[in-house]
Design a protein around this nucleic acid. Sequence first.
DNA 1: CGAATACTTGATAGTCCTCAACTCAAGTGG
DNA 2: CCACTTGAGTTGAGGACTATCAAGTATTCG
Lengths: 225, 225
Amino acid sequence: MHTALAANSPLQNPSIFMRGLHETRSVQKTSSSQAAGSIHSYVKDEEIFAEGARATRLYKVISGAVRTSKLLSDGRRQIDAFHFAGDIFGIESGMEYRLSAEAVGESVVIAYHRGSLQSIADDTQQFAMAMLRSLVRAQNHLLLLGRKTALERIATFLLDMAERLSAEDEIDLPMSRIDIADHLGLTIETVSRSFTQLERQAIIELPAARRIILRDKTALDRLNA
Amino acid sequence: MHTALAANSPLQNPSIFMRGLHETRSVQKTSSSQAAGSIHSYVKDEEIFAEGARATRLYKVISGAVRTSKLLSDGRRQIDAFHFAGDIFGIESGMEYRLSAEAVGESVVIAYHRGSLQSIADDTQQFAMAMLRSLVRAQNHLLLLGRKTALERIATFLLDMAERLSAEDEIDLPMSRIDIADHLGLTIETVSRSFTQLERQAIIELPAARRIILRDKTALDRLNA
DNA sequence: CGAATACTTGATAGTCCTCAACTCAAGTGG
DNA sequence: CCACTTGAGTTGAGGACTATCAAGTATTCG
C-alpha cells in the first residue's frame, strides 16, 4: 500500500509534486492570482483522468463539480471527495494517479502542467495549502465513514455542502444519489430514506430531489455528533 | 508504492506549515540525518497531544507506536492512523491539532518545534513528503472504511502491518483489539471473530493474541479486493 | 408522448453490533 | 507457590441498522 520510507532518507531533490504550477498553454487568464494553465471543459460523467494513469497534471475547478474516486475490483466505489470552484485536485506523490476524476456535471477546469517549472512562491504555497485541505477533509471523512450512522453521515454531508456551495440554507446539489451514496459509504436507498426521514422531522425540505432547504440547522448540528 | 521524485524547484518561500523542522532543545542527536529535536518518552496510552490543543510541534517516531485519533461527543472513536519508527505525525495547517495522539505502547518520539525557523530545504522536503504519505494513507483508508467488509478490512490491515513492521510474515502487533477495531471501523468482537475465521481457514496463525503469522498471503491479497 | 433515468418506497435479508458469559495470561499478595 | 484479581481476548445469542431485491413514482429528454 504505501511505502515505508526509511526513517532518514532525506529527499535530495525537490519532489515532483512540489514543482510550481506551470502553465501548459496559456489559453486564457483566469481571475485568480496564480499562473495560468490550460482550460478544459467536460460533460457530465466525462473522465478527467483515470486511476493508474500517468500523473502529469494538477487541476483546479473553475466551474461545475468534480469527483475523485477509487474502485474495488468488483465495482464497489468510494468517492474520496467532491471538488467545486476553486478546489484543486489531482495531487499525487508518485508517477500515477491513485484515484480517478470525473465531471459530476458540465464542468470547466484549468490544468497545470507539473513538469517544467520555475517555481513561483505563490504556486508552492497554494499547492501546499491544497494538499493540506485534502488531508483535513480526508481525515474528517475517516471519522464519518468509520463511526457515524447513516443519518449522521447525511447531516454532516448537508452541512458541508451548505457551507461549500451555498450562501444561504438552500442547496442545489450537483451530484446524484449514487454519488452521494458512494461518498458516504451507503446505498442510494439508504440515502433516499435518510433524506425522507429528515424531511418528515421537518429538519429539511425537499422541493426537488436535488434542491434541499435546511430548516433546522441546530438539529443537523446535533446529528453531526 | 513509490516515492519517485523528480528533481526540480526548490521551495522559495516556506509557508507557515512549511517552516523548517527546527530543534527546540538539542537533547540528543538521532541516527537520522535531519535537524535534531527534543526526545520524549511516553508510556502506554500516554497522551502526546490532545485534539484542540495548540499545534506547536511536529513529531517523528523513534521507537514504539503512536495512534492519532478523533472522538465523537458520545465517545465513538476513529483511529486515523498508526505511526511507527520513522513516521511523522502532528501535521497541521491551523493553530490546533485536529486529532489527538497517544502512545500505543512504550514509545519514544522526537519533537520538532514549528515556530522559529530558518528553513532547511531538507526539512521542508521531508515534511512535504510526510504530508503526502498521510494523505495517501488517509485516501486508501477511506476506501476501506467506506466499502470493505469486516474480513476485507482485516486482510488489508494485516498486509499493511506486515509490510510496515515486519520483514517476514510474522507480525507482532503493538496495538490492542480495541485499537484495531477503532482503526477499521469495527468492534473488538468483530475483529476477534475475523481473526478466528482467518485462522480456521488456515490463512493466518495466532500463536498469541498479538502475534500473527501470515500463512497464505495470496488469500489475503484476494480478500484485499 | 414514450422511453430512459433518477429517485422513492416497501419487504426481506444479512452483516455487524450489542450484551453477556467465558477463557486466558499476567500480576499481586498472603 | 497458589488463590485471587484484573485486563485482554474469544465466543455465543439475539437484535439493529443498513443492504438487497423489487416495485412504483417522478423527471428529463429526444
